[in-house]
Design a binder for these strands. Structure first.
Lengths: 159, 159
DNA sequence: TGCTATCCCATAAAATCCCATGAGAGCGAC
DNA sequence: GTCGCTCTCATGGGATTTTATGGGATAGCA
């Protein structure tokens, strides 16, 4: 499976390290790409993605006028991004800015949301989940429009 | 990764030297290219890049009318460019014009913005970051259209 | 002779490597 | 089904290396 799914709650040890879920790691390793984390623009969480996606953003920046305000905002994404190379046990050390942005202390909740995954303070995520769920119950469901994929033939392989 | 990301705040010592972040150094060394610094055109910061990037800018200038005002302005980028060779500990000495242009005194904030990086007076950058972040929060986010890349893409997605 | 830039060595803190342990999932034999 | 074996994975912590930084020594240069 090429998509990040499910959730995993892992501990931050006293050195500030946390294990990246093995499922996520194997996706990145399978693509032979390093792990990138960024601070989400408008949420108190971190976002994890492959380097491929960062390159796409860099391309988007280059396509803009280098001195425009739009470019400045996209550059903020790059400035908050950091490359991580998990140690031999699959852990990464989270720097203070990242811990602070997502209010992380003891535990981290990894949340797979498809092409990327998020890192949440567990309670913060559960609150947010309840809010969204209640919104859905009260009828405010989003439109979900599925389109056929271009490369219909290939499906997910695995280990 | 090939991109300059994240931020690093380093001290200018009493001899006027500052360490170039090891991550940035290794990118340049990996490409076997010297470090070039310029004064940013419309911002109080310096910009660091590889020599290859300089060539791209030169190409962009050539694409303009050689006698236009725009070309004259962009040529100032080249005029302010200077090549630096870090010492054995990875430090460079910043000349006075550069210190003055970016109002640098004690600390330098290296800000990776993709294909280049910037050198800011820390407070000056944080102010600018707040402005951009508020703009992003209030909905004025730039269009971000991610395009599949020519070389890297194993995952055929479009969205 | 002063000034400046560069080389070299030293050091503390932070990041990373490496080995160990234990819980738990999966699996096969019975 | 269930017992026990194996393997994976998250976690802990000591050992080692990297990195930023300070400063003395040396060599040009005005």
């Amino acid at each position: 499976m090429e998509l990040f799914t499910s959730t995993y709650e892992n501990r931050i040890d006293r050195k500030g390290r946390v294990s990246v879920p093995a499922k996520y790691r194997s996706i990145l390793e399978h693509r032979n790409e390093p792990l990138i984390l960024t601070r989400a623009l408008n949420l108190p969480c971190l976002e994890g993605m492959s380097a491929e996606r960062m390159n796409q953003i860099a391309d988007a920046i280059d396509a803009l006028d280098a001195y425009s305000e739009d470019a400045a905002i996209l550059q903020m994404i790059m400035a908050s991004a950091q490359e991580f190379r998990p140690d031999s046990e699959g852990r990464i050390g989270l720097p203070d800015e990242f811990l602070a942005h997502a209010n992380l202390d003891e535990m981290v909740l990894f949340v797979g949301v498809g092409r990327i995954f998020q890192l949440w303070q567990p309670n913060a995520y559960h609150e947010r989940e309840n809010i969204s769920r209640n919104a859905a119950r009260s009828g405010r469901t989003p439109q979900l429009i599925l389109k056929p994929r271009a490369n219909g033939g290939q499906n997910g392989d695995s280990k």
